[in-house]
Design a protein around this nucleic acid. Structure first.
Length: 281
DNA sequence: ATATCCAAATGACTTACGTCA
DNA sequence: GGTGACGTAAGTCATTTGGAT
């Protein structure tokens, strides 16, 4: 699992290159793209080195709204008047039978007689409820159990019912516990990866910002250099200049009095816009 | 050495949503 | 096309644990 591959799923795109000032990021989702920064002297164009960092719309994780929790039976039967916590639940995880939530009903259906037997036989299933203790006792997996689960997760991050059953038996856990473990494992792996991606992108952003700064500076220097060193005809509009194909000299064509289109180039002289502002007239 | 606090880890739960028969 | 069963993701809560003080 390479970082580069993962970065491709972030929905972010970074671009570095020459573009016009207000170029919008490409709409096409793609991996991070690092174009080689152009550091050689660029021809006098209107383009400037630019960096783009874009976020694509629907690539992110879905955020589910919980505004309609009341439609589930759970809150109707268990919500406490005045309680601020909409998600307050019963103290014991094994008091599911008393819950009317669809999830629990489903859960009860899901547990086959075979699974129930496994659950009964499981030494690690909390028995507190049977003792009348309503506290939620949290299962802690042993190192061996964790190792086996991890090993299994490496092979396949989701389990089919048969695999789940077999693994549960092997671990002396309920299939439900194995299922929950895999759910949590998937979720937390994804979260971790998202954090890693985020860090990576932050670093990319910093790098590109620095690079952008450096290129802007370089561009300013080149512009200043150009102003100081270029001959006068460089200040003429581009349309007024032509190049002789044979001698490769630049000449102005706007000069109607000129016998040859290359006459300007044949007698070049330097033009200082500051000392002779009216020279063009 | 012990008690306390706090953050991280993690097991369990609910809800929403997609897929399939 | 509507419906129920099922699986999974996302979000959340509660408990446990380990480190800092």
């Amino acid at each position: 699992m390479g970082l580069d591959d993962d970065a491709c799923n972030t929905g972010l795109v970074l671009g570095l290159g020459f573009s016009s000032a207000l170029e919008t990021p490409s709409k096409k989702p793609s991996c991070l793209k690092f174009e080689q920064p152009v550091t050689t002297v660029a021809p006098p164009t209107t383009f400037e080195p630019s960096l783009t960092l874009g976020l694509f719309g629907d690539q992110g994780y879905q955020v589910t709204k919980k505004s309609d929790v009341n439609k589930s039976g759970y809150l109707h039967h268990h919500e406490e008047p005045g309680a601020g916590d909409l998600y307050r639940r019963q103290a014991s995880p094994h008091s599911a039978v008393s819950s009317f939530s669809s999830g629990r009903i489903k859960r009860e259906r899901e547990v086959s007689s075979e699974e129930l037997e496994v659950e009964k036989n499981s030494s690690r299933v909390s028995d507190e409820d049977e003792d009348g203790v309503n506290a939620r006792k949290k299962l802690r997996l042993t190192k061996e159990q964790s190792a086996l689960l991890e090993e299994s997760f490496k092979q396949h991050s989701t389990l089919n019912p048969k695999q789940k059953q077999a693994l549960a038996k092997q671990l002396n856990l309920t299939p439900r516990q194995v299922e929950v473990w895999f759910q949590n494992r998937r979720a937390r792996t994804k979260l971790k990866q998202t954090e890693v991606d985020c860090e990576f992108l932050k670093k990319c952003c910093e790098t590109l910002t620095d690079e952008n700064r450096r290129l802007q500076k370089e561009l300013q220097e080149l512009k200043a250099l150009k102003l100081a060193a270029q001959p006068f005809y460089m200040h003429m509009p581009a349309a007024t200049l032509t190049m002789c194909p044979s001698c490769e000299r630049i000449g102005g064509v706007a000069d109607g009095n000129s016998k040859s289109p290359f006459s300007v180039a044949s007698k070049p002289h330097f033009y200082n816009p500051y000392s002779n502002p009216s020279a063009a007239c």
